[in-house]
């Protein structure tokens, strides 16, 4: 089983768990399904911490789930700043 497809499955599972939804597809958009930016960050943190899977949060918000995984170095550099934030294990809500 190649890495990308297991990662993709883990991503779908994580979305399902966060939204408590059983029917999530790679062609879905997280926000359209009812996700929001907080949940998106939580998702990125969970996948990074638990499975070492990297997710492009901007794409999570704007694209379909199949486009969201970061797999190349180029992509990784582009999202460096977001990774730094996601390096924390909790997100603090600032009023």
């Amino acid at each position: 089983m190649n890495r990308k497809s297991t990662d993709q499955k883990a991503l779908i599972r994580e979305v399902e768990q966060l939204l408590n939804e059983t029917d999530v597809r790679p062609t879905d958009n997280f926000i359209e399904l009812g996700g929001n930016s907080f949940l998106a960050l939580q998702l990125a943190i969970n996948l990074k911490d638990r499975d070492n899977i990297e997710v492009d949060v901007a794409r999570l918000l704007g694209n379909t789930l199949e486009c969201v995984l970061i797999t190349t170095d180029v992509e990784r550099d582009k999202t460096q700043s977001i990774q730094t934030i996601c390096g924390q294990t909790t997100v603090e809500v600032v009023e």
Binding site: E21, T22, E32, G34
Partner: peptide, 21 residues
């Protein structure tokens, strides 16, 4: 299905879409 409800609510502004059903 909850999926049907999500798709229906995709027509609402993003912040008005329920996250969990």
């Amino acid at each position: 299905s909850t999926r049907e409800l999500r798709l229906a609510c995709s027509k609402l502004p993003p912040y008005l879409r329920p996250s969990r059903y």
